Simulated assay, not measured.
Amino acid sequence: MNTSTLWDLTGWEFAALAFAALLVGFSKTAVSGANTVSLAVFAAVLPARASTGVLLPILIAGDVLAVLTYRRHAHWPTLWRLFPAVAAGVVVGTVFLLWADDGIVRTSIGAILLLMAGVTVWRRRRADAGAAAEDEPDGVVTRAGRLKARSYGVLGGFTTMVANAGGPVMSMYLLSAGFRKLGFLGTSAFFFLIVNTSKLPFSAGLGLIDADSLLLDAALVLFVVPGALLGKWAVTRIDQRLFEQLVIAATVVGGLQLLLR
């Protein structure tokens, strides 16, 4: 893999990656989508394609911590409906990576994220400000919701494979489906643990994960834990409306970063 080893990094570069790893932990247990900043940091310090291979094990470590924290709040009917579509998206993303350059990948995903953020804001504004959340997310109980789940699933699988950017996609889906804060975090925790783990053989086959990248991961994974603990502390102090606003804002920032890089 064409990337810097742990020993090639300057102190400032390692500090930037360590901060990005801490932010991964925070995003997994608090504001999903905030790790789009981590994507940008890793891609700035390391070669863009190689950075996805280094970041993937860091994301999985965060997923494990999130599952341990929110495992009781996962909504499995939604997960089972998403997985087949996500698998298709991962396969499409793998094929896409064989020929697409970084510029095409960034522009495509950035545009998708901004479009979905706009749609989600529009949907939320149409809802009554005081309306109670539905007992069952609409991604499960309606035909339109099931179609939406499949569409977002394919997009989520595609974006998570090509740029580890599936978080904002699924954040927009879970918000639009009416998930409350803990259900959102519990469902996304299991979703990304399973999806990111399934990506390992694809990434290794593409040469994105090797001994050098894993050595760097071993040094960075220590910073995921304090980030996750900070997120767990913060999420209890964030109300539902602010939570949704932060998730949408993080998605917009991530989309703009991809478009403007």
Rank of each mutant, 00 (worst) to 15 (best):
L230C: 04
L215G: 01
A228M: 03
G145Q: 12
G183E: 14
R150W: 08
L185Y: 04
F202C: 00
I209V: 07
V141L: 14
V225W: 09
M170W: 01
R143S: 14
L215K: 06
T142P: 13
T142W: 06
L220H: 03
T159Q: 07
V140G: 15
L185P: 04
L220D: 01
F179Y: 03
L200I: 14
R143L: 15
L193E: 10
F192T: 01
V195C: 12
S151V: 02
S188T: 14
P201K: 01
K148G: 09
S171L: 02
Y152T: 12
G153V: 13
L206A: 05
G207N: 01
F158Y: 09
Y152W: 12
L208N: 03
A177M: 06
D217I: 04
K148Y: 12
F191T: 12
E136Y: 15
G145Y: 13
V141S: 13
T197V: 08
L193F: 09
M172W: 08
A165L: 06
A218Q: 00
P226C: 00
L220S: 00
G167T: 11
A177K: 10
L155R: 09
G178L: 03
D217P: 08
A149Q: 08
D138Y: 13
V221M: 03
F179V: 00
S171M: 04
S188A: 11
I209W: 02
V195T: 02
A149K: 02
L208A: 10
D210N: 08
L208K: 05
L214V: 00
T159L: 08
P137W: 11
A144F: 11
T187E: 09
S188I: 13
S203E: 11
A218N: 07
F184P: 00
A177S: 14
F223N: 02
L185V: 02
V140S: 15
G153M: 06
A189T: 15
M172G: 07
R143N: 15
P201Y: 05
L185F: 11
S198C: 07
L185Q: 11
T142S: 15
Y152F: 15
A228C: 00
L229P: 00
V224C: 09
G186W: 13
A177T: 05
L193M: 12
L229I: 05
R146S: 12
D135W: 03
G157F: 07
V154P: 05
A228E: 02
R143T: 13
S151F: 12
L208F: 04
V221N: 02
V169R: 14
D217G: 13
F192N: 10
A144E: 08
G205F: 04
D212V: 04
T197Y: 05
R150I: 15
V140W: 14
L206S: 04
D210L: 00
G145K: 04
G183Q: 12
D210C: 01
V195E: 13
T159A: 15
G207V: 00
S203M: 12
